[in-house]
Write a protein that binds this DNA or RNA. Structure first.
Lengths: 202, 202
DNA sequence: CTCTGGTATATTGTTGACAATATACTAAAG
DNA sequence: CTTTAGTATATTGTCAACAATATACCAGAG
């Protein structure tokens, strides 16, 4: 069973929920978020809510106007989306290259477990979770290669990309693509891994 | 006279000061920052300070351990620094390409004003300000091309790079390099502009 | 009817007190 | 002497009240 982090702070849980609401469209574009409202909804005071909103603003999911509050950011224009794909690909290619020889069996177990959790989420039609696990898979080797330094750069790019295509079209494709990446990693075949990666990121 | 933003919130001023302290080495590597201490120093309560610390953490200048506070992040290893240079170059090249034909005389005035402020800062040996103005110059056309979406991705990369080389070696070089970029922009010569940019980012 | 000015309301920004957690120190047991 | 348990302190996390600011509404002048 894939667990992710073992303990999560209240702040992280709220941040995660809001991220998902934004990415899956529960919160519509340009919608204004009121601190009081969110505080009541999550049963905490405005303090932690403010922290979360600031965080998501830095991630690009929200935009903030001083003294006016925050609202859901609009999707990227096609031009910008293309750039984000390029940047993300460059980061992950780098991460693959610099980590592929250091990955252990334990790493492969983690990644493999992540993918089976992804299938389960598909079968339960829990597409929000699918999106999260998709990111977890990629984040794993980004973290492995560049630590939190690299993850900090990578995450906002991916969150921002995710706002654009909110629907997952095909369950099989998603799993097959990721499995191809994982297999190439286990074979230590960097060329194939990168090819698989480029087929997956779009 | 180059002004930058006309009004800045208390939070932004504190953030700016702390960023500079980190980048110029006033705050040494791995140094722990205590909220109470900073609150007293800046004459505000802990609330705004927490906001700033969270912000700088997202920017990669600080690292945070839950319930343990934040400390100054360590400089990037050479491998990662190379990647950051690549990413930054890719972003700014894109920004140049997509903005070069839309720049107006007003934009050139801004950029030019930014550079003369940079010289002044050099002559006053205010290297912290030099660093800020250097970033302002680049940020201007990044903003122009990709708006805050792109700036949000670009900024953490540059802040993180800046932690590595804290000293400015040569005043003339810095000005000459930027002036070459600006002149190429005014000539709408994209090839030359990119060449100048690549000579500047390193 | 449109525009301006002012007032009422709602929302964010800030503060100091309190709670929960981690760190540093001390003393006792092995 | 080293290790461990317990306690005291320091620091972060949370909260609710207050201040400052922006928004929405309404009335009156032109």
């Amino acid at each position: 069973m894939y667990e992710g982090k073992v303990v999560v702070s209240v702040r992280d849980q709220i941040a995660r929920k809001l991220r998902n609401d934004i990415i899956d469209g529960t919160l519509s574009e340009s919608e204004k978020l009121k601190e009081q409202e969110l505080a009541q909804r999550f049963g905490v005071s405005r303090g932690p809510i403010r922290d979360v909103l600031l965080q998501l603003t830095k991630e690009g999911l929200l935009t903030s106007k001083p003294n006016c509050g925050v609202s859901v950011n609009t999707a990227l224009n096609p031009h910008m989306q293309t750039l984000m794909v390029e940047l993300r690909t460059e980061i992950e290619m780098h991460a693959l290259r610099s980590s592929i020889d250091t990955l252990t069996d334990k790493d492969f177990d983690e990644l493999s477990g992540c993918l089976s959790a992804l299938i389960d989420a598909f079968n339960e039609e829990n597409y929000t979770l699918v999106t999260e696990l998709d990111m977890s898979f990629h984040r794993y080797f980004v973290q492995k290669a560049g630590g939190s330094d690299l993850v900090n750069i990578w995450e906002p790019i991916v969150y921002r990309m995710r706002m654009n295509y909110r629907r997952i079209d095909n369950a099989d494709d998603c799993f097959t693509e990721h499995n191809r990446i994982l297999n190439a990693m286990m074979d230590r075949d960097i060329e194939e891994a990168i090819a698989a990666l480029q087929a997956n990121i779009r």
